[in-house]
Amino acid sequence: MTAATRARTDVVAAVRAVPDPEVPVISIEDLGILRSVEVDGEVVRVVITPTYSGCPAMRAIEDGIGAVVAAHGLRAEVDVRLAPAWTTDWMSERGRDALARFGIAPPQPGAGVAAAGPVSLDLSVRRVACPLCGSEHTEQISRFGSTSCKALRRCLDCHEPFEEFKAI
């Protein structure tokens, strides 16, 4: 492996590991918002997609990518692309595990399939396990939490409130 190849591998790994600013236990890759990374000479082209149209973290994520690329002596060009629209189905297993350990219930799978079909789902009737004790005996307090991507729930067994990453 030449020094140039190693530098290239390093910067790609660093971009993939950039943490989400609001939930720093999960990387942008594991969250599923990193779409591609391409090293072209001195320039690193990165394509990301927002979680929600109004996600205020996008700017911080762009800055985060810019900073790690600059630390490798290269320059980042970040392209924010809307299509195809992000879905929580793109979140990795590792990302889901990290969320659960952090006390946030991971999103339920199948969001993309449900959104594509004509069937309207009652979003409040779902079984969500408590990330603290594992009980499925939980209820929703509010479908809108501290950020667009999370809902508020509480556990009826251990009585702790917790956040859930909404499937979208």
């Binding site: 809307l82 299509a83 629209a85 879905t87 959104a115 479908r143 667009s148 979208i168």
Partner: peptide
């Protein structure tokens, strides 16, 4: 079309 595809999921909520 891309803006709409993203927004339609939000508006569902």
């Amino acid at each position: 079309a891309a803006i709409a595809a993203k927004a339609v999921k939000e508006v569902d909520y």
